[in-house]
Design a protein around this nucleic acid. Sequence first.
DNA 1: ATATACATGTAACAAGTTACATGATTTA
DNA 2: TAAATCATGTAACTTGTTACATGTATAT
Lengths: 184, 184
Amino acid sequence: MSRLAAPSVLGYALLELLARAPCTGYELTQTMDYPVGHVWAARHSQIYPTLIDLEARGLVRHRVVAGRGPRDTKRYTVTAKGKRALVSWVGSPFRVPESRNEFLLRVRALWLTDRARALELVRAAYDHHRARLAMYQADEARFDDRDRHDPKQPGFTTYATLRAGIGYEQHMVAWCEWMLASLD
Amino acid sequence: MSRLAAPSVLGYALLELLARAPCTGYELTQTMDYPVGHVWAARHSQIYPTLIDLEARGLVRHRVVAGRGPRDTKRYTVTAKGKRALVSWVGSPFRVPESRNEFLLRVRALWLTDRARALELVRAAYDHHRARLAMYQADEARFDDRDRHDPKQPGFTTYATLRAGIGYEQHMVAWCEWMLASLD
DNA sequence: ATATACATGTAACAAGTTACATGATTTA
DNA sequence: TAAATCATGTAACTTGTTACATGTATAT
């Protein structure tokens, strides 16, 4: 989080949220939990220092306001400079990063174990992905036509990532079914 | 990489590879590059220290042998203790970790940019995922019937992760096509 | 009475990236 | 003769996790 290199990916994630609407750090931790956390996870212990860093770079600014709860809270907004940095990031060269999937790594190691334990791992994943799929599909029903069709609306890109989530969960559910059948 | 906590996920990834066949650090870096790297990526600068750590824990052991190239190389094997640690890891409780997908994070931010740049990002991803899919499908053709059907063969679990990769790339290709159509 | 929500931080550590370092042999 | 392959390491840095730290108000 030095002031010389570019902001971290999390920094841009927070900027993008703040570009949609000013938020407090606390509200950001909640939105980062869901839905953004399903795309880029972060804990409050990383979010608060990142906000301080973004402010040191002049990309956001805060005002102390009365909180919903018992104490004061800081409401952050994106500065003009922050908006420019964000737009520049979105258009900057991008390579799909290498992935890390601990579940599939364990699947690779299943030949070392017995059938019961293999089934246990895959069934737990199956339950998890079916639950996620149901949750995402319930979310999808809430989007209105403008969100579904106008790419300039923030709602559209949220919808687009939700569609990606649904497709992913469908794929994982199908894979688990194939795997469970193969283990029999 | 302290000697007190459990080995890292990468440590188990290397153990699993060595349980299939003894390897040198150099060979491990190549296998980690592909195919394992598509499930758990790591560079040689992380792999070599991890091997040293695994050896300090007594989970692997090495012998210096003549290398293919000009210099000597270290051939690592899993110890009995290493095999037990690996089997215990495979059966240990597992929760699907939170994900980090920078591509989808950028997609979320596309409302901030113009149609041309949005198309550019999605088309690059489209090309990437179609190329991956073709590569995986070519790989799949090479698996024989024993690998496809016997869950106790290491080849089967490799095949299973490859099937997961194919399903994932198919999902991403379909999503990109939907997205490109939506941007029109 | 107890737990949850509100609200924001720091510290110690683990994991991962990039760059530096070396140098022979084989292939184009 | 230039580049790629073989072969193994270290150092500085960034990123992310877990635990520590504090304290009020509201709901159960």
